[in-house]
Design a protein around this nucleic acid. Structure first.
Lengths: 227, 227
DNA sequence: AGGTGTGAACACTTTCACAGCA
DNA sequence: TGCTGTGAAAGTGTTCACACCT
């Protein structure tokens, strides 16, 4: 493989190549698995081991990683610490992302309480809602703000990413405001297809769709000899 | 296209063919879009319209639907009511699925309160937790039960699908018990790769992975001329 | 021997483009 | 004419298999 530099770590993160969504999700999973390893575990692991834990194949693991560089040693496998660092860099997790939570309802509060975000580099620095009964109440270190101050909040708090946990009807309007205020990433819990400019990234979480996918699978497999 | 019967509705649901996950997700989306239409909207719509609302292409819509039958009329498009029925049948939504919620914490309670499930054919008929402070408390029409009664509850309540909203450490154990008790579908919120027999369907929901996918996209696009 | 990195083969998905029906 | 349904083409993603390094 050709690469320019001398002693720099081998990492092709900067190369613009199309990386599939499934690859990215697996990389996230690999990182989670590595982070779950104890200090007593060996400091090195093979693509086979990682694949086993991730429910994929060794070839898939090697291919995924090789898209970004050569992180392993032949005959040895991958050094856990090194690979963790590479994955964090690949995924853009070596910085803290400033997140605003839009919607302080059930979903919003469940997400807010989920401490893993902070540990994983996503800091919820603002919470906004429409309900006067919620505005002004303290949530941990932040105070719930009026969603009408959305644009100012996003700018002042230098928000990178917005988590949309509001009713369907409000989702597109708030998206437009957030995008206008410079937000480039949205994690969308509302069951609508958000319309955004091409330079804005959206990830959808839709539990009903997941359940319907289960329903589909269960319905199909019923007849196929599983009895 | 060849098909056996006489006057029966044209529907290939029974045919065993590999349908991709992305197709299934789009079908769910199409259904949601159709259900969101008002009575004042036209009773018919084209693949182009549906594609527009779903953020995909007309060819994709037609291909997705054609995997299951010929539901449209050339020159006319699709009848909304008919297509809704077909999609419900394809997705296995013409019955009510009996769901047990494992874990009455933040996520569990947010999910439980999300009324859309019931409307969409997923009835949460049991809630279980480990916490003695929660066991016995009424949640709507059901009472939180001791997770130690899991197997009996699953059998007695004829549970089809389990929603796993418990801490990571408990997830695999509860999965094994549920599978042993005959559950064939699991919606998993725990950040672990569950091990299940091949006839059990699992869908994962992992918000951290979604955020990391956003992080990846934002990191990559930074340099690529969006400024 | 053990295990990575990777081109090539294969499998799957999406898009194209058009015949054919309303 | 308008729009579906669908083979064929193009495009993507996964698996194979092996050269090569430790």
């Amino acid at each position: 493989m050709m690469r320019g530099g001398g002693g720099l770590p081998t990492l092709d993160v900067s190369v613009t190549r199309k990386i599939s969504d499934s690859t990215v999700r697996r990389l996230s999973q690999y990182l989670r698995i590595l982070e779950g390893r104890r200090d007593s575990d060996p400091g090195t692991l093979s693509s086979h081991e990682l694949a086993g834990d991730a429910g994929t194949t060794a070839a898939q693991v090697r291919k995924d990683l090789s898209l970004f560089g050569s992180f392993g040693k032949r005959g040895m496998g991958y050094r856990v610490d090194e690979l963790k660092d590479h994955l964090r860099e690949i995924l853009g997790l070596q910085r803290v992302w400033r997140v605003a939570l839009l919607g302080a309802g059930r979903i919003g509060s469940a997400l807010f309480e989920y401490a893993d975000f902070r540990r994983r580099g996503f800091d919820i620095v603002a919470v906004l809602d429409r309900d006067p009964g919620k505005i002004g109440t303290p949530w941990g270190k932040v105070v719930v703000r009026d969603v009408r101050d959305l644009e100012r909040t996003l700018a002042e708090d230098e928000i990178d990413v917005v988590i949309l946990a509001v009713p369907e009807e409000a989702a597109q309007l708030l998206t437009d405001l957030a995008v206008g205020a410079g937000v480039r990433g949205i994690l969308n819990f509302a069951p609508v297809q958000l319309r955004v400019p091409p330079d804005v990234a959206v990830q959808d979480v839709n539990v009903v769709t997941e359940l319907e996918a289960l329903s589909f699978e269960l319905t199909r497999s019923r007849g196929n000899g599983a009895g």
